[in-house]
C-alpha cells in the first residue's frame, strides 16, 4: 500500500501527470459540469502553496483536496437551502451571499446544534464516544486508538462503525425534521 517515497514528487508535477485520472475521479464522484471548475480551484490552491513543504504522498493529497473542495460546495448548497440550521455561521466561516451577523434566532439554533452534537456523542456511551472523538476530531489512526485503550483493532473498528452510523443517522434525521 505505502509506496516508499525516496524523493517525493511535487504536487504540481503529480497534478499535471495525473490530471486525467483526477478529472475522472471527479466525474465518478458526481461533479458533473463542475469538474473542470474544481480542477481549476485545486490548481490555484496548489500554486498558492508553492515553496512550502511538499506533502509526503502527493497523489493522496490531491485526491483529498478535490474531495474536500467538492464537499465544501455541497455543504454550502445545503446550507443556503437550509437557512435555519446555520451552525457554521458562528464559527466565523462566512458563506458568500449570506449575512455576516447571524440573527438572534439563528444564533440560538447554532448554539443548540453544538450542544446537541456534543450531547449526541456523549450519548454513544463509553468507550464508543472516546474512540469516535479520537478518530474524527483528533485524527488518530485506529491502530493507535486500539493501543491507547488496550483494545483489539477490530473492536475499535466495530465501535467506530456504530458511532458513525448512529451520528450520521441522527444528523440526517434532524435535517429532515
Amino acid at each position: 500500500m505505502n509506496a516508499k517515497n525516496a524523493a517525493p514528487e511535487t504536487l504540481e508535477a503529480v497534478f499535471l501527470r495525473d490530471r486525467a485520472r483526477l478529472l475522472g475521479f471527479l466525474a465518478r464522484a458526481g461533479a458533473g459540469a463542475e469538474a473542470e471548475d474544481l480542477m481549476q480551484e485545486a490548481w490555484l490552491r496548489i500554486e498558492s502553496q508553492r515553496g512550502r513543504e511538499e506533502p509526503d504522498q502527493p497523489l493522496s493529497y490531491l485526491y483529498r483536496l478535490l474531495h474536500n473542495l467538492m464537499l465544501d460546495r455541497r455543504r454550502s448548497e445545503v446550507r443556503s437551502a437550509r437557512r435555519d440550521t446555520e451552525w457554521a455561521d458562528i464559527s466565523g466561516g462566512s458563506v458568500p451571499g449570506t449575512s455576516e451577523e447571524p440573527d438572534t434566532d439563528r444564533r440560538m439554533i447554532a448554539e443548540e446544534e453544538i450542544r446537541a452534537v456534543h450531547a449526541a456523542v456523549t450519548a454513544l456511551g463509553e468507550p464508543t464516544a472516546t474512540i469516535f472523538r479520537r478518530h474524527r476530531i483528533d485524527g488518530i489512526v485506529q491502530r493507535r486508538i486500539a493501543e491507547e485503550l488496550g483494545l483489539g483493532v477490530s473492536t475499535v473498528e466495530k465501535h467506530l462503525r456504530r458511532a458513525y452510523a448512529a451520528l450520521l443517522d441522527w444528523r440526517s434525521m434532524r435535517d429532515e425534521a
Binding site: A29, L71, E113, I114, R115, V117, R133
Partner: peptide, 23 residues
C-alpha cells in the same frame, strides 16, 4: 456517489459542530 455524499456532508457537519467549544 449518491449514497456517499449525504453521509460525508453529515460527517463534516458533525465534526464542525464538535470542533466548536460548548457555548
Amino acid at each position: 456517489a449518491d449514497a456517499y455524499w449525504p453521509l460525508a456532508t453529515a460527517d463534516a457537519d458533525v465534526a464542525a459542530a464538535l470542533a466548536q467549544p460548548l457555548p
